[in-house]
């Protein structure tokens, strides 16, 4: 095994141990969308033009993507926690691969959040959501969710490493809950005023949500939307590729230099 793979595996193990000792944040971020599914699905669902059952089918993919977008927040918390505590100094004085610490964090996050999708999907099934496409498309939807989570995590890691304090990272991370509100995750964007609709459709969350709805066969691709939403799978892959290409190297570099 290469040094990088070995060190990353060791750091992955460390992250999983940390979560085992302190599962609070993981439990919160994974149960929140279930609460939202029940609230939005039955409270908002009764006020929308769409029938309730149809809205809940529309909502499940949106919540899956919004949960994946929480990778920014979790990535920030974890990276800030590390970088403002002494253990980072020890890693930096070890002859280990520089990229292994953030890679281990991103890898463990992926493992945990992929497993964390299961309860939401089960509650979704209970409230009427169904996989209406092929099995291959459903697998592709899950893979896309994982890729998107991975991309979001790297934004979070970079912001967390650059943060002034754990508290600052906590506040900024908490503010990221508005990102899915400016997308089609919870409501269709068709009726938004022009400029807001354009902004929402260029939100990466919208492209991924549309792709996941399309792959699960829950809702058709909306007509006349901006390119990433009109071509949701290609648009999502492009968004993820760009975000990873920008934020992963920046975060790894930031870690390696440690602002020294």
């Amino acid at each position: 095994m290469s040094a990088l793979a070995y060190d990353t595996t060791a750091m992955l193990g460390r992250q999983l141990q940390r979560v085992r000792h302190n599962p609070g944040l993981l439990i919160l971020t994974q149960t929140m969308p279930i609460t939202m599914l029940l609230f939005f699905g039955y409270v908002f669902g009764s006020a929308l033009a769409m029938p309730g059952a149809e809205y809940r089918s529309f909502l499940v993919p949106g919540l899956l993507v919004a949960t994946a977008a929480n990778g920014i927040m979790t990535g920030m918390f974890e990276a800030a926690r590390d970088s403002h505590r002494g253990v980072m100094d020890r890693f930096r004085t070890l002859p280990m691969s520089r990229a292994a610490v953030p890679l281990g964090q991103a890898a463990s996050d992926l493992v945990l959040t992929t497993a964390g999708m299961v309860p939401l999907l089960l509650v979704g099934l209970a409230v009427g959501w169904r996989i209406e496409g092929t099995a291959a498309e459903a697998v592709a939807a899950v893979a896309l969710l994982m890729l998107f989570r991975f991309a979001m995590t790297w934004i979070g890691i970079l912001l967390g490493l650059a943060s002034q304090s754990e508290e600052a990272a906590g506040q900024l991370g908490g503010a990221t809950f508005i990102l899915p509100l400016l997308s089609n995750a919870y409501i269709p964007t068709d009726n938004l005023p022009g400029w807001l609709r354009t902004a929402a459709e260029w939100n990466p969350i919208s492209a991924v949500t549309t792709a996941v709805r399309d792959l699960f066969g829950n809702a058709p691709v909306p007509e006349g939307a901006a390119w990433p939403v009109a071509h949701p799978v290609a648009g999502s892959l492009a968004w993820c590729a760009v975000l990873i290409a920008v934020f992963l190297p920046l975060a790894v570099r930031r870690y390696a230099t440690g602002g020294r």
Binding site: Y6, D7, A10, G13, R14, Q17, R18, H21, N22, R81, R85, G86, V87, M88, D89, R90, F91, L94, P95, M96
Partner: peptide, 23 residues
């Protein structure tokens, strides 16, 4: 270092095992 440079979120044993693997 002057300030603790172990991982407070891990046990003492987990800390040393991790550093031993990384070394």
């Amino acid at each position: 270092g002057q300030f603790a440079s172990v991982d407070g979120d891990l046990t003492g044993r987990e800390n040393l095992r991790l550093f031993a693997k990384l070394r």
